[in-house]
């Protein structure tokens, strides 16, 4: 009898076990799906941008873009640069940033050689090092974010001047720091384009302003005085065109001496409208700041940029080897300059 009772109990237990069967029985699984909290687990990362210098409109615009990206992407952005375009100052700042244990250091280099040791030092401490705007030796950084294709830009700058001087006459170039790698590449392409297409044009002088607006202004005045037949001035760095336009305006030569070059539209707005400058070319430095932060943030997550990648709010980028190219240059004229605000 006892045995029967225990059998009955066993049966009941068995049936109870059956009814508690899970509603779903997994047949095949290629992996668990992570829950939201797991994927969202993100460390606060810090990205440091070191411009050539601070407090010029161009790098201020870059800062705006970088800060915007920091907010949008949820990363902490440090924007710190020297007051003047000086490599030694930059080394000092980079050393500070290494001590602050940032995750990425993005440098716009004043000197491609001098910065190499400190950038290697940063890399040895597991800090990702990239360059933007102005490159260093490729051994010392992971990638370089270029605004435009230097060849396209250099040739285009030459073209804009040629349109405004009927492809003939003397012209001068005001560049930034003599050592800045990007400026020298553009300068080189300007010369090539002249040689190939504009034999009647004659480059009389290249002066270096060291990105100092006042120095550039003095140099522009000197050029106008020195070369009375000067037909045009190319500003090869962003301080050049405003200084040249100001000098041309003051010399009463608006429209007679063409001013083109690289500059944000805001400082040139007035000059373009009074014909003291004809065309300035640039990219959006805000976009550059944004893109630099976005790519740096991706690098921390292990995502390298690739050709034709669509960066949200930036657009498609192109990648050549270890160089990222942001896009095409924009020409600002008196017709469209009001559309832009940087």
């Amino acid at each position: 009898m006892k045995r029967r009772v225990s059998l009955f109990l066993l049966l009941i237990l068995f049936l109870a076990g059956c009814s508690q069967k899970p509603a779903y029985e997994i047949v095949y699984s290629s992996g668990e799906v992570k829950t939201q909290s797991e994927t969202n687990e993100k460390r606060q990362v810090t990205i440091a941008l070191v411009p050539k210098l601070v407090n010029i409109p161009y790098f201020n615009a870059v800062e705006e873009g970088a800060i915007e990206a920091g907010e949008d992407l949820g990363v902490h952005v440090i924007y710190r640069g020297p007051a003047v375009a000086d490599a030694d100052q930059q080394i000092k700042i980079i050393n500070e940033l290494i001590n602050e244990k940032v995750d990425v250091i993005a440098v716009s280099a004043n000197d491609p050689d001098k910065l190499v040791p400190v950038m290697k030092k940063a890399q040895s401490q597991n800090i990702k090092v990239i360059t933007w705007d102005a490159d260093t030796h490729s051994s010392s950084r992971e990638l370089f974010i270029n605004m435009v294709d230097p060849e396209t830009l250099g040739r285009h700058l030459m073209d804009t001047l040629a349109w405004n001087v009927n492809e003939e006459g003397d012209f001068a170039i005001i560049t930034g720091a003599e050592s800045a790698a990007n400026l020298n590449v553009w300068l080189n392409w300007i010369k090539i384009q002249r040689r190939e297409y504009y034999p009647k044009m004659n480059l009389v002088e290249v002066t270096a302003s060291d990105d100092d607006p006042h120095k550039a202004y003095i140099q522009a005045k000197q050029l106008l005085a020195e070369y009375p037949n000067l037909k045009g001035i190319i500003g090869n760095s962003s301080v050049g065109p405003p200084a040249a336009a100001q000098a041309v305006k003051e010399a009463g030569k608006s429209g007679k001496v063409a001013v083109v070059g690289l500059s944000p539209p805001n400082p040139m707005n007035e000059y373009l409208k009074i014909n003291a400058a004809q065309v300035v070319t640039l990219w959006s430095p805000k976009k550059l700041g944004f893109l630099t932060v976005a790519i740096a943030a991706n690098l921390i997550e292990g995502k390298k940029p690739y050709d034709r990648q669509d960066i949200p709010q930036v657009g498609k980028i192109s990648v050549k080897d270890d160089m990222v190219i942001m896009g095409e240059p924009i020409d600002f004229t008196k017709e469209n300059v009001d559309q832009y605000d940087f």
């Binding site: 899970p22 779903y24 997994i26 992996g31």
Partner: peptide
């Protein structure tokens, strides 16, 4: 919401 959190297959039992 009750489905197993997987990529794969499962069958209902009830």
């Amino acid at each position: 919401a009750d489905y197993p959190k997987i990529n794969g297959s499962f069958k209902t039992t009830n």
